[in-house]
Design a protein around this nucleic acid. Sequence first.
DNA 1: CCCGGGAGCGC
DNA 2: AGGCGCTCCCGGG
Length: 570
Amino acid sequence: MHEPQLTMVSLSFKTIPLKKTNELAAFTLVVNKNFRLSSTKKVPEHDYIMTALSKPATMTLPYDWNGEMGGNNEKVESCLGEKHLLNIFLKELRQIDPDIILGHDLLDFGLEYILQRMKVHSVNGWSRLGRIKRKDMPRMAAQIGLARAGHDACNGRLVADTKTSAMELVKMRDYNLTSLCEEQIPEQLSGLKPHFLYACKNRKEYLPEHIVEAFGSSNTLRMLLQENINDCFRNMLISSNIQSLPLAVQITNICGNILSRTLSRGRAERNAYLLLHAFHKKDHLPPPPYKKKTVEDGDKKGPKFAGGMVLEPKKGLYTNYILLLDFNSLYPSIIQEYNICFTTTAMQAPPDLPKTMEEGILPFEIKKLVNRRKEVKKLIKNEKNADELARLNIRQLGLKLTANSMYGCLGFTASRFCAQPLAALVTAKGREILEATKVFVEKMNLEVVYGDTDSIMINSNSTNISEVMKLGNLVKKEVNKHYRLLEIDIDGAYKSMLLLKKKKYAAIDQNGKEEFKGLDIVRRDWSEIARNEGRTILKLLLHEQDEEEGVRKIHEHLEMIGTEAGKQRI
DNA sequence: CCCGGGAGCGC
DNA sequence: AGGCGCTCCCGGG
């Protein structure tokens, strides 16, 4: 299908404290008129940059400010005040007429903030933010972060928010722009100058007082504006690195929902669209919305049904190989294996397996997603072209994410297709399967040391990796005999492992890769030194095959730390 | 001392 | 604006 060329603008702005609020002080628009949503290109392109600056109410511009950025950057448009700046912003937007607005934290903050400032100044043309001429501003919530008026005002344009997208697609501690730059901008990218990439990756946070200070001289003001320009490029780099736009296109294509919603709203709505299409296609009425049994059921917080099973860990240090097996896509597979669906299963507690032989709509849809993914994976195997490969990978990911999110939405109270009895049935079968697998493996005279929801860890009592893999394949073959399409697979083998508690362990796998799960050292509520030292000690223990020697080395290291701390070197 | 509840993880 | 399970830690009684 021919894909249209779109106009994208990357937006970044700076504000200055003013009484109890902030006023808009400067903005930059980086414009790309040849943007394609599905493009997997990593190097951002742009046609031109536009920056505008206002004289804040409480400050003066530097006496020698000449509106020049120096170098080959464009001239800065200087405005008399915030209202003037806002009008220039709207004028530019009108000329550019972007299809896509890209930025960081636009959805929960940025757009709402700009709209708020326009309201303060009664800016007439505010509806130019979007593509519909409107008289009344959408009503804003008292609190920014809860409202959607800013986004609403941008009707007709896609809003791509690097914060929102990153929160969905990558696991990070913080999603502020500085952290995103650090973690989501690559070290190197052919086609980009290393020093520019380095500058983008290493963002300096401008606190409000720094912005105020920057207005003190032309040089510092230029630096501030340059950073604002760089923020635009940073968001372009982050966006193309996490591939949020091509993925959103794929997900929208898979679910048949609305693209702007894929970029802004939760997963439940996407799944609802997919299911509504499916029910319609089969000429079947969608199920009535799920009703809670009692009022208290709806109000009480906490779990509404039982989840996965966690096996009691056999705690200790293991220096033989621990075999790691897990079921592929356990919950989507259970839905298919047992034909669990709105159309086949009674909405009751305790839930009961369906008796009908007719395939339900939900398992049918999941099967389609899984099969389509298999097809794409086949294509990936034979594909040589890098661009096409990237495109197929995004497609494969979209299919996987959609299949895997079905269970979660069954349990979600606010979903149109909420069906907690079905979710409860899925997890019940999951617990049953894990328990049965444990019992079965133990009957093979093997020791199960741990397992969580869909995984099982087996003590191989061996230090020979090929023996271990052979054993793994045997277990896999035997377990899989019990199921029609449910499948367990070898996930790896831990060369050594320290198993402390449920969901807390450290290990080194057959390739030397370290895994730390749930321990204090992975938690952000512990100090950096505690995390680092904990890590060092675990590494000493896990890499040293002889336990006594490991313990001796740890004592030695702790002595050293104590001494250094005493000397106040740490 | 026992609780209930939140963080912040794991899956 | 997917789910629950499990430490931990804290404060109230």
